[in-house]
Computed example of a mutant assay.
Amino acid sequence: MTQHVVLAGASGFIGKHLADAFRAEGARVSLIGRRGPDARWGDTAAITELLDGADLLVNLAGKSVNCRYSPANRAEILRSRVATTRELGEAIAACAAPPRLWLNSSTSTIYRHADDRPMSEAEGEIGSGFSVDVATAWEDALFAPDLPNTRRVALRISIVLGDGGALTPLVNLARAGLGGPQLDGRWPATRSRLWAGTYHRRATPRGRQKFSWIHIDDMIGSLRWLRDHDEIEGVVNIASPNPVDNRTMMDVVRRAVGMPIGLPAFRWMLEIGMAVFRTESELVLKSRWIEPRRLVDGGYVFEHPHIEEAVGTIVAERRRRR
Rank of each mutant, 00 (worst) to 15 (best):
L50H: 03
G9D: 01
R202F: 00
N149Q: 10
W289K: 11
M249Q: 13
I77R: 03
R35M: 03
L178I: 04
A21K: 07
T168V: 02
Q182V: 05
T190Q: 01
L223R: 10
R224M: 08
V65T: 11
T107R: 11
P292E: 04
R206H: 10
A61K: 02
A61H: 01
R247F: 13
L78N: 07
R208P: 00
P118T: 13
I272W: 11
I110K: 11
R321C: 09
R206L: 09
R81D: 02
I216Q: 06
P71T: 11
E123V: 08
I232F: 11
T109C: 14
D228L: 08
V65C: 05
R186Q: 00
E25K: 12
I261W: 14
L183W: 01
N66Y: 12
D184G: 05
A174C: 03
G164R: 02
R28F: 07
K210M: 14
S287C: 06
L178Q: 08
W102Y: 15
V311Q: 08
Y111W: 14
E309M: 10
M274K: 10
G165F: 01
E90I: 10
T48Y: 08
R206D: 13
R152S: 07
N246D: 13
W102Q: 03
G180R: 01
A203S: 09
A114E: 15
V171S: 00
T204W: 00
L295Y: 08
P181I: 06
P145N: 06
N172L: 03
D230H: 14
P37H: 02
D116E: 14
P37Y: 05
K210P: 00
G312N: 09
A21I: 05
I214K: 05
R193F: 00
Q182I: 07
R224E: 07
E271L: 10
M1A: 06
L57G: 02
P181F: 03
G127T: 12
W187V: 00
R28N: 08
G124E: 06
K286A: 04
G127Y: 11
S120R: 14
R74Y: 08
Y111G: 13
V296E: 02
S30D: 09
G33Y: 04
D297I: 06
